[in-house]
Nucleic acid binder design. Structure first.
Lengths: 155, 155
DNA sequence: TTATATTCAGACAAAAGACTCTTAATTGAG
DNA sequence: CTCAATTAAGAGTCTTTTGTCTGAATATAA
């Protein structure tokens, strides 16, 4: 797959936070329930984003996480690189370490421009743009429509 | 990453076979040494491609594997799907099962066309085209240039 | 001060992916 | 027929990814 599951979850959570950027610190519990992701697992993922200074956190009651910067300044690529690394945007399709314009693999000339487009897609789209779409309520960050709660909660 | 390591290796081996399509059955041992991939591991991968009728194999002396069809009729996508499945060409970027034009994720409209391009890239390029490039000797399927043997062999 | 809500840190477990090894089966050549 | 070359099959191991759990630290509010 293009992104790891961990990265999927991290992105979805970031999207949720961006859509709720007007609010104060948001508990991870709330995010995990709304997006139907294991609370403990999500906690771990969001810790990474906190360490990378994409989120800030606050302990105790009224605590939670929120974006560390204006949503406009956080590209999706920033989130992806924090979790999965930059491999998607830099590496050879068939995994050759030394693939380069001088020593190309047979797909190099066709893959490179496509990889650059992927790169630009995640670069130019910021959490802000995504949040605008989400608030219009015609888009999803979860498999169940918003409002309908998942039946199984973390106990 | 875009493709699994298993798929990388499988593709590289298929490319090697295509570039040597004039010869008869080629021992997996030869491929594993030329491409510097573990013999046993590669055996397993090529078994998959044999089961999927992309390769045919032949036991005993003078045995080995070769393409089961003309290289022109084997798209890279066929090889990729045999190993990694079709997820790369069908799934949502952020992994939503229900993402669709009716219930899109915020990236759907931008990702879908890009995904289709990736799809077409691997669809239109066949092992034949890759083999032509490889035979011109300006392209690589391995990190070390052809001719220079890797120092460490499988014992 | 005590109870409660929350993140943080890290150990642990389970599943998947990547890779190794052994043994069996098949075949061609002498 | 026998032997060596070679793939086939599958058990087994190591590593990474995914996910769970517990306890500590921190903050708030009563």
């Amino acid at each position: 797959m293009v992104l790891s599951k961990t990265c999927d979850y991290g992105l979805r959570a970031a999207l949720y936070l961006a859509a709720n950027d007007d609010r104060e610190f948001i508990p991870i519990k709330e995010i995990s329930e709304k997006l139907n992701i294991s609370f403990h697992f999500l906690t771990k993922i969001l810790q990474i984003l906190t360490q990378e200074d994409i989120l800030t956190s606050f302990k105790g009651p009224k605590g939670g996480v929120k974006l560390a910067m204006p949503a406009k300044t956080i590209s999706l690529r920033k989130v992806i690189e924090a979790i999965d690394g930059e491999g998607l945007f830099t590496r050879c399709v068939i995994g050759l370490d030394t693939c380069s314009p001088e020593h190309p693999c047979p797909l190099h000339s066709e893959w490179e421009p496509l990889r650059d487009r992927i790169s630009r897609l995640f670069e130019k789209n910021t959490l802000f743009e995504m949040a605008v779409k989400l608030r219009s309520n015609q888009f999803r960050v979860t498999d169940v429509p918003f409002g309908i709660q998942p039946t199984k909660h973390t106990k």
